[in-house]
């Protein structure tokens, strides 16, 4: 079965690793996988989007508008920016924590994460909000945000992938010393989704 994922956030949040992990899980099942990521200049604090498509008969990795089964927002306002990609029955996983843009600091306006999440919920029937700040704190690293969101994605049932499949890929991809921390984040992310 073909599946499409759209991951979006701000440069430096780890969207690239997350999309590669999703693609690898599909490949490990013997399926085709393709990804398209933002790399280069746009990464420096800019908006980043990763497309992932898995299954068969796929020519391009770019997810069409209205084509994503799952929208994984690493940042609430970026999830709103990418809502057009979600299928009408698609699920949105979103981090609760806003990343303040420099422009907001200069104008004195702070980005309100609650307003963004409320808007997502108004238009999307199933929104899973993950308290990534708490998970990152409990894992003692801001870098596990991506894996926590993958945990929630797996638990949502919409990703066609289980946490144990993701765990297997993480064990292969990550350096030894980072594995325990990331597996904890994966579990906490999955728990967050099951509580929704």
């Amino acid at each position: 079965m073909n599946r499409s994922f759209l991951l979006c956030g701000v440069g430096g949040q780890g969207t690239v690793l997350a999309s590669r992990v999703l693609a690898q899980t599909a490949m490990d099942r013997g399926e085709y996988a393709g990804t398209a990521e933002t790399i280069g200049m746009a990464q420096r604090g800019g908006c980043v989007v990763s497309h992932v498509r898995t299954g068969s008969g796929i020519n391009s990795a770019l997810v069409p508008e209205g084509g994503a089964d799952l929208l994984i927002g690493f940042e609430p306002s970026e999830a709103v920016r990418c809502m057009k990609y979600l299928k009408p029955d698609g699920v949105c996983i979103v981090s609760s924590k806003a990343v303040q843009p420099v422009t907001a600091a200069l104008t004195g306006k702070r980005l309100d994460s609650a307003e963004m999440i409320a808007y997502l919920k108004k238009h999307i029937s199933r929104v899973i909000v993950v308290d990534t700040e708490a998970i990152c704190e409990s894992c003692a690293s801001p870098k596990v945000l991506n894996v926590a969101l993958l945990g929630a994605a797996a638990e949502s049932g919409k990703a066609g992938v289980s946490t144990s499949e993701i765990e297997e890929v993480l064990r292969k991809r990550l350096p030894e010393k980072l594995i325990d921390m990331n597996l904890k984040a994966l579990r906490l992310g999955a728990e967050a989704a099951s509580e929704e």
């Binding site: 420096r44 604090g45 800019g46 508008e65 209205g66 709103v80 057009k84 843009p101 420099v102 808007y119």
Partner: peptide, 20 residues
């Protein structure tokens, strides 16, 4: 298919690339 209307979305921040 109709493209959903998100014109009432809250104002989204500009995120130009910047020095780290």
């Amino acid at each position: 298919e109709e493209i959903p209307d998100f014109s009432d979305a809250p104002e989204l921040p500009a995120r130009p690339p910047i020095l780290c």
